[in-house]
C-alpha cells in the first residue's frame, strides 16, 4: 500500500530524514513513533505530496508521491499536526467547504464520519476556532475523511489533547480501520503504540526498527529490572555507578536497569548493600514496554554509529 524506499530529506545542513525505508500493508493501522524532532512531520508532508524528498522514492498504491501527486491528492486524507481548518468558519461550513473542493457532498460520505460527527453535532454552528482541542481534532479528522480517501495520514493527532479525548480518538481510528481504511499515524507517546498493528520507531531521521508492538517486546534481548524506592531521585545517581554494560534510566516513579547478563542483578544488589539507606528498595524483573524497546534500540544504534 505505502512503500518508502531510502527516503532522505535535507534542509540545508540538517538531515531531517536519513534513508527511511518501510512498508505499510493495506488495511493496517501503522504508527510512526518518535520524540519531537525525529522527522515525523517531514515524513508525513512528503507522503502528503507537500514536500519533495531530496533522495529516494515513496509510493502510495503504486503512485509516486512526486510524479502522481494529482491522483494521490484524491485518494489520501491528510491531517496536519497543527490545526489547519478555517477558524472563522463554523464546523458545518468547514466540512461543507472541504467536501465541495473534493467534488463531493457531505451526505454522500456521511456514513464514514457518522461516528465522529455525533461528537460534533452540538457544535455545528460554532466557529472552528472556538472549539476545544479534542473537538478540533475530531473536526479535522472529519474533514480529512469527507472525500472517502483510501489512506489516512494523521500527523500527531493526539498531541495536546486530554487523555479522555485521546482514548476516544483511538477508538474512532479502530472503527475507521474496520471500514477498510489504511491509516498511518504518528505520535510522540510511546504508550500509544499498543493501539497500532505495527509501528516504526523513528529517531533523528532514522528508522530504528519496524515491528508489531508485541514483536518489538519479544525481540527485546536484555534483562530488565525495575527498582522502586522512596527517593528515586537519589537512586539514579547511585545506579549510574554501575559498569558501562548496564543501562540505567528513569521511567515514571521507577528506575530501570537493563543488562545483557542474567546475573547482572547480583551486581545491583551488591551496590545496594553498600549502605543501609537502600534497604527498602524493591527490585523486580519487569516486562519491557515500547519505551524500553525504544531506548534499547536507540543505544544499539548509537553504538553502531560510533563503530
Amino acid at each position: 500500500m505505502v512503500i518508502l524506499n531510502r527516503v532522505s530529506k535535507t534542509f540545508g545542513k540538517i538531515k531531517a530524514l536519513d534513508e527511511v525505508t518501510f512498508q505499510v500493508n493495506e488495511g493496517e493501522l501503522f504508527g510512526v513513533i518518535g520524540p519531537d524532532g525525529a522527522g515525523k512531520t517531514t515524513l508525513f508532508r512528503i507522503l502528503a505530496t507537500l514536500l519533495l524528498p531530496t533522495e529516494g522514492h515513496a509510493t502510495i498504491k503504486k503512485h509516486d508521491v512526486v510524479q502522481d501527486f494529482g491522483v494521490l491528492r484524491k485518494i489520501t486524507g491528510y491531517m496536519p499536526g497543527q490545526f489547519s481548518l478555517y477558524p472563522d468558519l463554523t464546523v458545518e461550513e468547514n466540512l461543507e467547504f472541504y467536501a465541495r473542493v473534493f467534488r463531493t457532498r457531505v451526505e454522500d460520505n456521511y456514513s464514514l464520519i457518522r461516528d465522529i460527527f455525533t461528537y460534533l453535532e452540538p457544535f455545528r454552528k460554532r466557529r472552528a476556532g472556538n472549539l476545544s482541542g479534542g473537538m478540533k481534532q475530531k473536526l479535522a479528522l472529519s474533514c480529512a475523511l469527507i472525500h472517502r480517501p483510501e489512506i489516512l495520514l494523521l500527523d500527531e493527532p493526539t498531541t495536546g489533547v486530554d487523555p479522555v479525548s485521546r482514548a476516544e480518538f483511538w477508538g474512532l481510528l479502530h472503527n475507521l480501520q474496520k471500514q477498510g481504511l489504511t491509516i498511518l499515524v504518528s505520535t510522540p507517546y510511546m504508550d500509544e503504540a499498543a493501539h497500532c498493528n505495527r509501528i516504526a520507531l523513528l529517531r533523528q531521521g532514522r528508522i530504528l526498527g519496524v515491528n508489531t508492538p508485541k514483536g518489538l517486546q519479544e525481540e527485546y534481548s536484555l534483562h530488565l529490572w525495575g527498582l522502586k524506592g522512596e527517593r528515586p531521585a537519589l537512586l539514579l545517581p547511585l545506579l549510574r555507578q554501575l559498569p558501562a554494560e548496564f543501562r540505567v534510566y528513569a521511567a515514571g516513579q521507577e528506575v530501570r536497569v537493563a543488562c545483557r547478563e542474567r546475573n547482572g542483578i547480583e551486581k545491583i544488589k551488591a551496590l545496594l548493600e553498600t549502605s543501609e539507606k537502600w534497604d527498602h528498595i524493591q527490585i523486580s524483573l519487569v516486562q519491557p514496554d515500547v519505551e524500553d524497546c525504544f531506548i534499547a534500540l536507540m543505544q544499539e544504534n548509537n553504538e553502531l554509529q560510533y563503530k
Binding site: 502528503a48 505530496t49 507537500l50 494529482g70 491528492r73 484524491k74 489520501t76 491528510y78 496536519p80 497543527q82 490545526f83 489547519s84 481548518l85 478555517y86 477558524p87 472541504y98 473542493v101 473534493f102 467534488r103 474533514c143
Partner: peptide, 13 residues
C-alpha cells in the same frame, strides 16, 4: 500564518 494553506494544498484544487 494560520496553517490553513496546508489543508488546501492537499486538496485537488
Amino acid at each position: 500564518e494560520r496553517g490553513t494553506i496546508e489543508q488546501i494544498n492537499v486538496t485537488p484544487v
